[in-house]
């Protein structure tokens, strides 16, 4: 068999392999959670020299932008009692949305919060059922796993509502880092995010539709 013929069969074989539609949709949703500026394509239009120049220009621009951010913007956000919680809420919402669309399997299957508490002993807070989910109905606990919110250990709990929809609930200790954060309701690329405080815990709830 010639090399061309063999390669043709390989192309045909791999061309017939498809990622399933559900996973594909989930990945596309994931890709759209955060919108980033795309770097202009230089590899197909420019010479090596132009590519290097564009790369250096991009690097220099990024460095200047980072300097401005560190020098002016971040201190301003820290000192602004309104802007900082707003930025923090946005960051948490993105983190929650990202974790939600990853749809990771549960590590600790459980039918309720007592079962989860028993299995997730590394948490430095006590897991509990939230009072203000905003969904109006009861949720069935499927299980949980460890995760982090803003670098802080958290619990990620998979829930199912009466209509069979999967939701992801997050709980973590409401540390001083979250001070000033108020109840938030946001939408990111079709994912409904709700963030709120109950006593000493910070809660987050994500669902593709609530």
């Amino acid at each position: 068999m010639s090399r061309e013929r063999l390669d043709g069969h390989l192309r045909r074989y791999y061309g017939s392999q498809q990622l399933d539609a559900t996973t594909l949709e989930r990945l596309k949703q994931l890709a759209q959670v955060e919108t980033r500026a795309e770097v202009p394509e230089s590899s197909t239009h420019g010479s090596q020299g132009r590519r290097r120049f564009a790369s250096r220009l991009l690097g220099a621009t990024t460095a200047v932008a980072a300097l401005v951010l560190l020098t002016f913007v971040l201190p301003a956000l820290r000192s602004d009692p309104v802007a900082r919680p707003e930025a923090l809420a946005g960051s948490i919402a993105r983190e929650i949305a990202l974790n939600h669309v990853k749809n990771l399997t549960v590590e600790f299957p459980a039918e309720g919060y007592p079962g989860l508490r028993e299995q997730m002993g590394k948490l430095d807070f006590s897991l509990r059922s939230p009072e203000h989910t905003g969904g109006g109905g009861a949720f069935r606990v499927i299980g949980g796993r460890y995760c982090s919110i803003q670098g802080q250990l958290a619990a990620q709990i998979k829930l199912e509502d009466g209509a069979g929809r999967l939701l992801t609930l997050y709980q973590t200790d409401f540390s001083e880092d979250f001070e000033g954060l108020s109840m938030q309701q946001r939408e990111l690329e079709g994912i409904q995010i709700r963030i709120w405080r109950e006593g000493d815990l910070l809660f987050g709830l994500a669902a593709s539709e609530i």
Binding site: Q17, L19, L27, A31, V33, E38, L98
Partner: peptide, 23 residues
């Protein structure tokens, strides 16, 4: 392995997203 391939792809996508890499 199709299942492993889907897992690898998903993990890689999350990694790209976290690193802020372009698609």
């Amino acid at each position: 392995d199709p299942d492993r391939a889907a897992d690898l792809l998903q993990d890689a996508c999350v990694s790209c997203l976290r690193a802020g890499a372009a698609w």
